[in-house]
Design a protein around this nucleic acid. Structure first.
Length: 275
DNA sequence: GTGCTTGTTGGCCA
DNA sequence: GTGGCCAACAAGCA
């Protein structure tokens, strides 16, 4: 479930195991598609023996910094996950990258391989990290910036616009539906058709859902992602969006699912009107 | 077997 | 050049 909060959740998981430690060996599945942006041999050279310094999460991505100026970027794609396994752990079929520490192994597994690994050597952060748009919870994410972006994408359905990482970094399919549902905006509305009040509600709910998601998901230390819905209150759309015959937590009316902007979208027709 | 899935990218077309 | 749409990527699951 790699949306913004899950990236932070996984970052913490590796961080807790890696703090103050040194990588003693690096294992790679060299032909895995996740290495399309980084040469596995260069990665092994750069990371073997390097000490872990720190990490950050932004959007759906993470960067882990190591001694010697090595920056390891990880994008989880659709199905990627970071795990901590025992020191002698033998990588399973979909474990494409393993960083061995003295007492644990940091594992990046990704069955569908939509994820990716990136590597940078140097004293300052690479472009692939610094070019990520300002976080939804940062001061730079203003209502005016959202309004301007919606004007530029005026004819696209608002659901598709919310998935554009250049303005809404870290917002994925379920967060977009959750935001539109809370803001009471129909996902098929053209982005340019929103009233100023609706744009403001959208901006507010982007921040609200991001804050809630971080507190609810990333705040849990060790839970597995498949358990996420256990921790999300039933007052969210999230817990009802996949069930057939699911009902809107606010109106108690039936929810609807349709493909919008190429993605399955769930909304509450009683609450989110087309016009 | 079919049809779905939490994301991104490149190509096509208006 | 810009914006919008869609298929493709790959594997698992029901």
């Amino acid at each position: 479930m790699p949306e913004l909060a899950e990236a932070e959740f996984y970052r913490k998981r590796w961080h807790q195991a890696a703090s103050g430690r040194r990588i003693v060996a690096v294992l790679t599945h060299d032909r895995a598609r996740i290495f399309r942006g980084a040469d596995p041999a260069a990665l092994r050279r750069a990371l073997a023996g390097a000490r872990y310094l720190g990490s950050e999460a932004a959007a759906k991505q993470m960067v882990f910094r190591f001694g010697g100026g090595a920056w390891l970027g990880i994008h989880l794609g659709m199905s990627g996950e970071l795990r901590v396994e025992p020191a002698g752990y033998a990588p399973a079929r979909h474990d494409h990258l393993v960083l061995r520490l003295a007492r644990a192994s940091l594992v990046f597994g990704d069955p569908r391989m939509f994820g990716r690994v990136q590597l940078h050597a140097g004293p300052t952060a690479p472009a692939w990290w610094t070019c990520i748009a300002p976080a939804v919870l940062s001061p730079a994410f203003t209502a005016d910036a959202v309004a301007a972006f919606l004007r530029r994408r005026a004819r696209a359905p608002i659901k598709a616009v919310l998935l554009m990482q250049e303005r809404f970094p870290g917002i994925g399919n379920w967060m977009a539906d959750e935001i539109l549902w809370r803001a009471a905006i129909h996902p098929r509305r053209p982005a340019g058709s929103l009233s100023p009040a609706e744009v403001r509600a959208l901006w507010r709910e982007c921040r609200h859902v991001a804050r809630l998601a971080l507190a609810t998901i990333a705040g849990r230390g060790t839970c597995l992602p498949r358990d996420l819905n256990v921790h999300i209150p039933n007052s969210w759309l999230f817990n009802h969006r996949w069930e057939d015959g699911g009902r809107c937590p606010k109106t108690k009316k039936l929810l609807v699912r349709e493909e919008i902007g190429g993605r399955t979208t769930c909304w509450s027709p009683a609450r989110q009107k087309l016009r």
